[in-house]
């Protein structure tokens, strides 16, 4: 499912993220050797700003709004970057969409 502006994401429990020497690294955890196919991911500046906001509370729309203030870039560009990265992270199961309460 592609992310929408209303989608809220949180980090997966099967992921470790860590700042090392100024770099944000995301490490998918695997329990068994048969499961392994993922590598370690490194985030660029935009990626860092997005990743740290994926706390299970902020929707994509809120993140886009906040990043517009941080980067002073065109809203369309920020929107494409955020939704694109969320889609990529979700596809790799590094983030999980939070279910909305009924």
């Amino acid at each position: 499912m592609s992310p929408t502006l209303d989608t809220v994401y949180r980090h997966s429990e099967d992921v470790i993220s860590r700042f090392v020497e100024g770099e944000l690294l995301i490490i998918p955890l695997v329990a068994g050797i048969g499961d392994m196919e993922n590598d370690i991911f490194s985030m660029d500046e935009t990626g860092k700003e997005i990743w740290t906001r994926l706390n299970g509370e902020k929707s994509a729309a809120v993140i886009i709004q906040e990043l517009e203030e941080v980067f002073h870039a065109a809203p369309d560009v920020i929107r494409a970057d955020v939704l694109g990265l969320l889609d990529e992270l979700a596809r790799r199961r590094l983030i999980i969409a939070v279910e909305k309460p009924v």
Binding site: I16, R18, V20, I27, L29, V30, A31, G32, M36, I40
Partner: peptide
């Protein structure tokens, strides 16, 4: 640092 984190979680590190 990463190896320490990953091992602490009982997972496997691939590099």
């Amino acid at each position: 640092a990463i190896a320490g984190d990953v091992m602490q979680r009982g997972a496997i590190l691939r590099f």
